[in-house]
Structures are given as C-alpha cells and as structure tokens.
C-alpha cells in the first residue's frame, strides 16, 4: 500500500490542498476586487491588496511544486495532460502572468487613479480566469476522455473535446466559488472596520451557498461527464459518511458566518475545502488521468522516486518553518499590533 508513488501522490494532493487554501484565496481576493461595489469599493480593494501582498508569491510556489512532482514522478501523465489540455493550460498560464504582473504593477505604479483602476481590472479578470481554467483542467483529467497508450505514451485527443464540455467547466466554476469563499472568510478577519467586515460576510454567505450549488451541479454532471469519479464518489464504502461529513461542514460554515463567528469560520472553511479536495483525490485514486493512466502505471522508477521523497522530506523540514514564519509575521497576532494606515503597500 505504502509504495513510493503513493507517498509522492499524497504529497501532491497535500500540496494541491495547500495551494487551494493559500493561492486559491489569493485568486478569491481578485474575484472580490472585480466585484467590489458600493461606497466602500476602494476600501475593499485596498484591504484585499494589503492582505495578499506579502504572501501571494510564496503561495504561488505550491503550484510549481505540483507541476514538478507531476513531471518527475509521473512523466507520462504530465506529457498526456499537457498535450490534451494544451489550450486550457495556456489560458491558465496567461491568467497567471497577468494576475501577478498586474498586481505588482498596480502596487508600484500609483501615479494616477485611471492607471490604478486599469491594473485593478486586469488583476481581477485574470484572477477569475486562472482558477476556472485550473478547475477545467482537473475536471478534464477526471472525465475519462483522454485516452493514452501507456506503453508508447501516445495520446489520442482532438485537443478540445476533453475539456470543452459541461463537466470540466462545472469543476472550473466550482473551483472559482471555493476561491471566493476562502477569500471572503479570510478577509472578514483582515479588518477592524465592521462595515467592511459586513461586506465580506455577505460575500462569504453568497459564496458558501454557491459552493453548495456548484458541488451539486458537478455531482449531477459527473454521471455523464466523469463516470469513473462518480462511481468513486457515489458508491465506495467511504463515500456516504464522507459526503455527510463534508455537507455537515458546509452547513456549519454557513451557520458560523451567519452568526458572525468569523474566527471559527476562518478555521472551518479550510477544513471544508480540504474535505472537498481530499474527497476528489479519494474518488480519483488510483487514476491519475482516467481511464488509462494510474499512479502506478505512470510512476518513474524507484531509483528516481526514493531520492525525490528524501528531498521532499528534507526540503519540507526547511520550508515549513519558513512558510510558518511568513504567516506568523503577516497573518499572526503581531499583525494586529503593527497595523497602521502607512503600511498598506510596501
């Protein structure tokens, strides 16, 4: 059971979960920048910029880790995914480039309001495109439409039908709602201003309900669009209790936001998202790209995986404290003490 490729796959799933909880929330910030409305629109935008400024680049690296692990440990799957899903991945990359650059350009170029607003718009639109395309990619991988000959690595694809379908896009927008929910809940705790807090509470409620709707829609569409995953989600021995747990967590999250228990919500929302991603991982296992590629039939030889796992463990020992310190400085108790107006932006 505990094969090397299984361990690497676990690290990839954990990285994906952390990427969703951190980088996903940064995209969510961009979504709420796009939908900033009312008298406090500018206050909402600067709160978002202030919240993600110091951490988004570090959060982004989790995506790189996932990609690198995919091509080192499961090279045939990486080749198949990047061949069949060339188009959505390219759109995701353009989104990544525009989101990051527009964000720094806006931060360091505040000559005029007009320029500022333009960069804001680019940042926000790119923050919507990127998670949708990431979700589309994950949905397509699960949809049993990418056929690969494992021996030769030959991919049978028309480059479009695997992803341009209802199910992948449902997953895309499901991902988008998750990002929006994470960001809205995190943002309630980024400000002392109760009016702003209320703005993001309302947004958190809207997203929490949307997450439920998209989860339901994805499950329905999975019957046609991702039969293998639907089987995993619907009939395995763990699936009923797991769904009940996830559903209960979703309701609890809505309840805490409704009751303005933001600190509790801040803890529960990541658990909810973790359960969702983890549930998908369980349903997907042992397939990496359904229906042909599994973790074991695409795994690199053990002579590659063993040192890779050692590097991951050693690197993790170095990395986790550093990542923790970053969050302690900017998101921990010290944040409140040192927070002044001047500190918005570097």
């Amino acid at each position: 059971m505990l094969s090397l490729e299984f361990c690497i796959a676990c690290v990839m799933l954990i990285s994906l979960i952390i990427y969703m909880l951190t980088g996903g929330a940064d995209f969510g910030g961009g979504i709420w920048d796009l939908f900033a409305t009312g008298r406090r629109a500018n206050a909402q935008r600067s709160l978002i910029a202030h919240a993600i400024g110091p951490i988004w680049e570090a959060n982004h690296v989790w995506l790189i880790v996932i990609v690198v692990l995919l091509f080192v440990a499961f090279p045939v799957a990486f080749a198949a995914i990047s061949t069949a899903l060339h188009i959505p991945l390219t759109f995701m990359l353009i989104g990544i480039v525009l989101r990051g650059t527009a964000f720094v350009f806006r931060t360091y170029d505040v000559q005029s309001d007009l320029i500022h607003r333009r960069w804001s718009r680019v940042f926000a639109v790119a923050s919507v495109i990127t998670p949708v395309m990431l979700g589309v990619t994950l949905g397509a991988v699960a949809s049993s439409t990418i056929h690969v000959d494992v021996e030769s690595g030959q991919v049978d694809t028309d480059f479009i039908s695997a992803w341009f379908a209802p199910f992948p896009f449902a997953i895309g927008f499901f991902t988008l709602t998750l990002c929006a929910l994470l960001a809205a809940v995190y943002l309630t705790l980024e400000t002392e201003d109760t009016e702003l807090q209320e703005d993001f509470r309302r947004r958190a409620l809207i997203s929490a309900v949307s997450v439920g709707a998209m989860a339901g829609l994805s499950f329905i569409l999975a019957a046609e669009g991702a039969p293998a995953i639907r089987r995993g989600l619907g009939s395995a021995y763990w699936s009923i209790p797991f769904h009940m747990l996830t559903g209960a967590m979703a309701l609890w999250v809505i309840w805490t936001i409704w009751k303005r228990q933001f600190r509790l919500a801040r803890i529960l929302v990541p658990i909810q998202v973790t359960l969702i991603v983890f549930g998908w991982g369980l349903a997907q296992y042992p397939y990496l790209v359904t229906p042909d590629l599994t973790f074991s039939n695409t795994a690199a030889p053990d002579t590659v995986l063993r040192p890779l796992l050692i590097v991951l463990i050693a690197g993790g020992v170095l990395l986790v404290p550093a990542f923790w310190y970053l969050y302690a400085v900017f998101k921990g108790a010290a944040r409140k003490a040192g927070q002044t107006k001047e500190e918005i932006g570097p």
């Binding site: 570090a58 091509f71 890779l308 690197g315």
Partner: peptide, 27 residues
C-alpha cells in the same frame, strides 16, 4: 519530458524548494 522528466527531476525538485525559499523571504 516523458523521456527526461524523471532523469532531470532532481535539480527541478531542488529548484522548487530554492524558489520557495526565495519567494517566502522576499515577502
């Protein structure tokens, strides 16, 4: 990449960590 990914994976994995270090401390 299907051919070379595993063989040159070591420097790429290490690069992942180095890049992480850079991004965290740059923040």
């Amino acid at each position: 990449m299907a051919y070379a990914g595993p063989i040159i994976g070591m420097p790429f994995s290490l690069e992942g960590f180095a890049f992480f270090l850079e991004a965290i401390f740059l923040g």
